[in-house]
Amino acid sequence: MPDRVYSQEEFSLFNPAYTGFLLLTMVREHVRESQTGMHCALPFLLVPMALNPTISNRLPSNKRSSLLAWISTNQGELIEFPELAQSFQPFVIHAIAFLMEKSLINLNDEGDFQLGTSTVPQTPSLFSKNESMNNTLRRARFLGRWFAHAPPVETLYAHLGVRP
């Protein structure tokens, strides 16, 4: 990963608590929908999708929509997704570390994220007070449910042009 200097504003905007809460929401919805854990590589796709308005505003409204068909239909908007995913990597790593440190998620022997022993409210009041944060939380919930029905993670990475 190339060295990139992040501004204080970027670190503040994508702090581990905020990004982590969105990730926790995705894991919670994924587990609820699939009855299995979330593959450990999915957060590196899902977090950038949830936090990028150009992508998240184009998400389908139905979890039964084909993910691969959506990727094909939205190739123009996803052309720079590999770079976007790479730029979010440090934020995702910090979010995962934050959630694991707080026992909100854990990694099982199969490499899947599961819900941990600690809990937090599903919709903190802060999210209800801010329309942008509430929309991002709604998208995070959808992504967690939608990717519970997705093809294998290797297929997703290949179709999105992301290299692990």
Rank of each mutant, 00 (worst) to 15 (best):
A148T: 03
V92E: 06
W70Q: 10
W70D: 09
I105M: 06
D109I: 00
H39Y: 07
A85H: 10
K63H: 08
G116D: 09
E83Q: 12
M133V: 00
T136R: 14
R32T: 08
L156E: 08
A97Y: 05
T19P: 10
Q75A: 14
T123K: 14
M38A: 05
F127M: 11
L45Q: 10
L84G: 00
E9H: 12
L45P: 11
M26P: 01
P16V: 03
L160N: 06
S65T: 14
R141H: 09
Q35N: 14
R138E: 12
E33K: 14
A150P: 03
H39M: 01
F11W: 15
L59I: 06
N57C: 07
F147Y: 14
H39R: 10
N106R: 12
S65D: 15
M133L: 15
F147I: 04
T123A: 06
Q114G: 01
L115I: 06
H159M: 13
T136D: 06
T155L: 02
P152V: 01
L156W: 02
L84S: 01
Q86G: 04
F81C: 05
A41W: 06
V92F: 07
F91C: 03
L59S: 08
W146Y: 07
A158Q: 15
G116V: 01
I96N: 04
S128R: 14
E77T: 07
V31M: 05
K129V: 00
F21H: 15
M38S: 04
L126T: 10
Y6V: 02
Q75M: 12
P121M: 11
G144H: 07
A17Y: 10
L84K: 11
M26L: 05
P16M: 07
V5W: 04
H39L: 04
L104S: 06
S132I: 13
V153A: 13
F81L: 05
F147N: 11
A95P: 08
N15F: 06
N57Q: 13
P124Y: 08
H94I: 01
E101P: 00
A95E: 02
H159N: 14
L104K: 07
H94Y: 12
V162Q: 09
R58K: 13
S7E: 06
A150C: 06
S128E: 15
I93Y: 09
T119Y: 04
R64N: 15
Q75S: 15
I71M: 11
Y157D: 11
G144I: 00
P53N: 08
E154L: 07
A140R: 12
L67Y: 03
R139V: 03
L115T: 04
A158V: 02
R58F: 02
S118G: 02
G161C: 07
V5M: 13
V27A: 09
H39K: 11
T73A: 13
L160T: 07
N134S: 14
Q75P: 01
A41L: 15
P53M: 02
E131K: 12
N52A: 12
